[in-house]
């Protein structure tokens, strides 16, 4: 009996300045395959469907349990993590493309350093005095922890930026993930002492005002983070901060 097979179509680009080509691979089906396994199969036999020798596909992946954020790509047009994209659930042929909102590196690899830079600009950290032993941290109500924990699960995958109509080459919008992190740090007792720096940063170009409430982000988030809630909450915080500073003449 012949093995069951299926087709994977991959958008490939050797370098950012080289032309795009689509390649088709015919892979042997096994139960519980995910897209990562497909890409490994191709690496082991990098011959296209028509028998032409190609190269293994470049892609980012690390933890393979949807907690590191590395393997985001467009799978059948949907921005998602490749590790949780099961072949059984996908329409065939499976179409793989790199995320479009980040500079392309090669094949399915893009450069998401913008997100890490934006975390820097928005001061997404708790400014501690030092790592020496100066006793316990501030007390925190369990209800605050229950709100904060889901936000702190953001894996910086970039799917929320990919689907946002306001994140593109024309607009420097930081995107929902970063705004949600600002909310997280403003929530923490120590972080709250420095919320003004973060809110100020979000008033600059690319800041919170760029959100136009298409609410795609929350639907694309693999971790179910309440991103639209974060956007609204931080919108309110920035506004109150802006009005207060204005009234005080700061």
């Amino acid at each position: 009996m012949a093995d069951k097979t299926f087709i994977v179509r991959i958008k490939r680009q050797q370098r950012p300045d080289e032309s795009v080509r689509w390649e088709e691979y015919e892979l042997r089906y096994r139960p519980h395959m995910n897209v990562i396994i497909c890409l490994r199969d191709i690496a082991e036999k990098p011959f296209t469907r028509s028998g032409v020798e190609s190269t293994p596909v470049s892609y980012d992946a690390n933890c393979l349990e949807e907690v590191c954020g590395a393997c985001a790509m467009l799978i059948n047009g949907t921005a998602r993590q490749a590790c949780t994209a099961l072949v059984d659930d996908l329409e065939k042929p499976i179409r793989l493309e790199p995320l479009t909102k980040f500079p392309l590196v090669r094949d399915l690899v893009v450069d998401r350093s913008k997100m890490f830079e934006d975390l820097k600009r928005t001061h997404c950290w708790i400014p501690i005095d030092g790592t020496y032993d100066i006793g316990e941290g501030p007390r925190m109500a369990p209800s605050v922890q229950e709100k904060g924990y889901p936000l702190s699960r953001c894996i910086t995958c970039g799917n929320c930026l990919e689907v946002c109509p306001k994140v593109n080459q024309r607009d420097p919008f930081v995107g929902a993930a970063i705004v949600s992190q600002v909310r997280l740090f403003n929530m923490h007792p120590t972080g709250a002492m420095h919320s003004a720096e973060r809110l100020e940063a979000l008033m600059l170009p690319g800041g919170i005002a760029d959100c136009d409430n298409a609410q795609n982000c929350v639907k694309a988030c693999p971790k179910g983070i309440p991103l639209t809630e974060s956007l609204a909450a931080v919108n309110g915080q920035v506004l109150v901060h802006a009005v207060k500073s204005w009234l005080r003449g700061e």
Binding site: I126, I128, T131, D133, G137, R139, A141, S152, F185, G191
Partner: peptide, 15 residues
């Protein structure tokens, strides 16, 4: 304690 000060969202007791 250090991690707590750094803002890790550790689970909390009612207190």
């Amino acid at each position: 304690d250090l991690l707590d000060r750094m803002g890790v969202m550790f689970n909390r007791t009612p207190e």
